[in-house]
Lab assay of single mutants.
Amino acid sequence: SHCAGCKEEIKHGQSLLALDKQWHVSCFKCQTCSVILTGEYISKDGVPYCESDYHAQF
């Protein structure tokens, strides 16, 4: 499978399933500020955001 963030193949190591896609753990980050999302996040149109950036933009 391929990472939804960087589009590279996910080989051995940690990956996560979010928004119905596979991601490298380090690629699942806020679209705006690039903080790596480990806990709470909000998505809009399949794109992840941290809570503060989501509320600031939408």
Results as ranks from 00 to 15, higher is better:
residue 18 A to P: 02
residue 19 L to Q: 04
residue 40 E to Q: 05
residue 46 G to N: 03
residue 33 C to L: 00
residue 36 I to D: 11
residue 18 A to T: 07
residue 43 S to Q: 11
residue 58 F to H: 12
residue 30 C to W: 00
residue 51 E to F: 06
residue 6 C to R: 01
residue 42 I to G: 14
residue 26 S to D: 14
residue 42 I to F: 12
residue 8 E to D: 04
residue 37 L to C: 04
residue 5 G to E: 04
residue 41 Y to D: 03
residue 36 I to F: 07
residue 22 Q to F: 09
residue 3 C to K: 03
residue 41 Y to F: 04
residue 41 Y to R: 04
residue 47 V to L: 11
residue 20 D to T: 10
residue 4 A to G: 08
residue 48 P to W: 03
residue 9 E to S: 11
residue 35 V to P: 00
residue 33 C to V: 00
residue 45 D to L: 05
residue 32 T to S: 10
residue 34 S to D: 09
residue 42 I to W: 09
residue 33 C to E: 03
residue 55 H to M: 13
residue 9 E to N: 11
residue 56 A to H: 10
residue 25 V to Q: 14
residue 42 I to Y: 13
residue 29 K to V: 05
residue 23 W to L: 02
residue 28 F to I: 03
residue 54 Y to I: 07
residue 13 G to A: 07
residue 40 E to V: 10
residue 37 L to W: 00
residue 32 T to A: 09
residue 46 G to I: 02
residue 25 V to I: 10
residue 37 L to G: 03
residue 40 E to C: 09
residue 25 V to L: 11
residue 44 K to E: 10
residue 39 G to N: 09
residue 12 H to G: 12
residue 13 G to Y: 08
residue 8 E to P: 00
residue 38 T to C: 07
residue 12 H to Y: 07
residue 35 V to A: 10
residue 53 D to E: 06
residue 17 L to N: 13
residue 43 S to W: 08
residue 33 C to S: 02
residue 28 F to D: 02
residue 7 K to R: 10
residue 4 A to I: 15
residue 38 T to K: 13
residue 48 P to S: 05
residue 20 D to F: 04
residue 20 D to W: 03
residue 31 Q to W: 06
residue 31 Q to S: 06
residue 19 L to V: 12
residue 51 E to A: 09
residue 31 Q to E: 12
residue 41 Y to S: 05
residue 51 E to H: 06
residue 17 L to R: 07
residue 57 Q to G: 12
residue 37 L to M: 06
residue 28 F to C: 01
residue 54 Y to T: 07
residue 9 E to K: 09
residue 55 H to G: 10
residue 43 S to T: 09
residue 6 C to P: 00
residue 8 E to Q: 08
residue 22 Q to E: 09
residue 12 H to M: 12
residue 54 Y to K: 12
residue 2 H to F: 15
residue 54 Y to R: 09
residue 15 S to L: 08
residue 12 H to L: 11
residue 51 E to D: 15
residue 38 T to P: 07
residue 53 D to H: 15
residue 31 Q to F: 06
residue 55 H to L: 09
residue 50 C to P: 01
residue 6 C to F: 00
residue 36 I to M: 09
residue 45 D to N: 11
residue 4 A to M: 11
residue 6 C to L: 00
residue 53 D to C: 06
residue 30 C to D: 00
residue 24 H to I: 00
residue 58 F to V: 12
residue 5 G to F: 05
residue 24 H to G: 01
residue 44 K to P: 03
residue 23 W to D: 03
residue 52 S to E: 13
residue 4 A to D: 09
residue 17 L to V: 12
residue 45 D to M: 05
residue 35 V to T: 12
residue 18 A to I: 07
residue 46 G to T: 04
residue 47 V to M: 09
residue 26 S to P: 14
residue 5 G to R: 06
residue 13 G to N: 03
residue 28 F to M: 05
residue 2 H to K: 08
residue 12 H to P: 14
residue 15 S to M: 11
residue 35 V to G: 11
residue 30 C to A: 02
residue 53 D to G: 04
residue 8 E to N: 09
residue 52 S to T: 09
residue 14 Q to A: 13
residue 57 Q to R: 10
residue 1 S to I: 06
residue 8 E to F: 09
residue 26 S to E: 11
residue 10 I to A: 04
residue 38 T to W: 03
residue 41 Y to C: 07
residue 19 L to C: 11
residue 22 Q to C: 12
residue 11 K to F: 08
residue 20 D to Y: 04
residue 7 K to Q: 10
residue 32 T to M: 06
residue 38 T to N: 07
residue 48 P to G: 06
residue 12 H to T: 12
residue 19 L to A: 08
residue 31 Q to R: 09
residue 27 C to L: 01
residue 23 W to Q: 01
residue 27 C to D: 00
residue 12 H to E: 15
residue 26 S to L: 09
residue 30 C to E: 03
residue 54 Y to P: 10
residue 55 H to W: 11
residue 32 T to K: 13
residue 51 E to V: 09
residue 22 Q to W: 10
residue 53 D to I: 00
residue 49 Y to P: 01
residue 12 H to Q: 12
residue 58 F to M: 07
residue 4 A to C: 11
residue 41 Y to V: 05
residue 3 C to I: 01
residue 29 K to I: 03
residue 5 G to N: 06
residue 52 S to A: 14
residue 39 G to S: 09
residue 18 A to E: 09
residue 26 S to G: 13
residue 18 A to N: 08
residue 7 K to C: 09
residue 25 V to R: 14
residue 36 I to E: 08
residue 46 G to W: 01
residue 27 C to E: 03
residue 37 L to R: 03
residue 16 L to N: 10
residue 35 V to Y: 03
residue 54 Y to S: 10
residue 54 Y to D: 08
residue 45 D to Y: 05
residue 45 D to F: 07
residue 1 S to F: 04
residue 37 L to N: 01
residue 33 C to Y: 00
residue 57 Q to V: 14
residue 51 E to W: 06
residue 30 C to S: 00
residue 48 P to F: 05
residue 22 Q to L: 08
residue 15 S to T: 11
residue 27 C to V: 00
residue 34 S to P: 01
residue 29 K to N: 07
residue 45 D to Q: 08
residue 3 C to P: 00
residue 54 Y to E: 08
residue 43 S to L: 11
residue 47 V to S: 07
residue 49 Y to T: 04
residue 48 P to D: 01
residue 20 D to G: 13
residue 19 L to I: 11
residue 40 E to F: 04
residue 37 L to S: 03
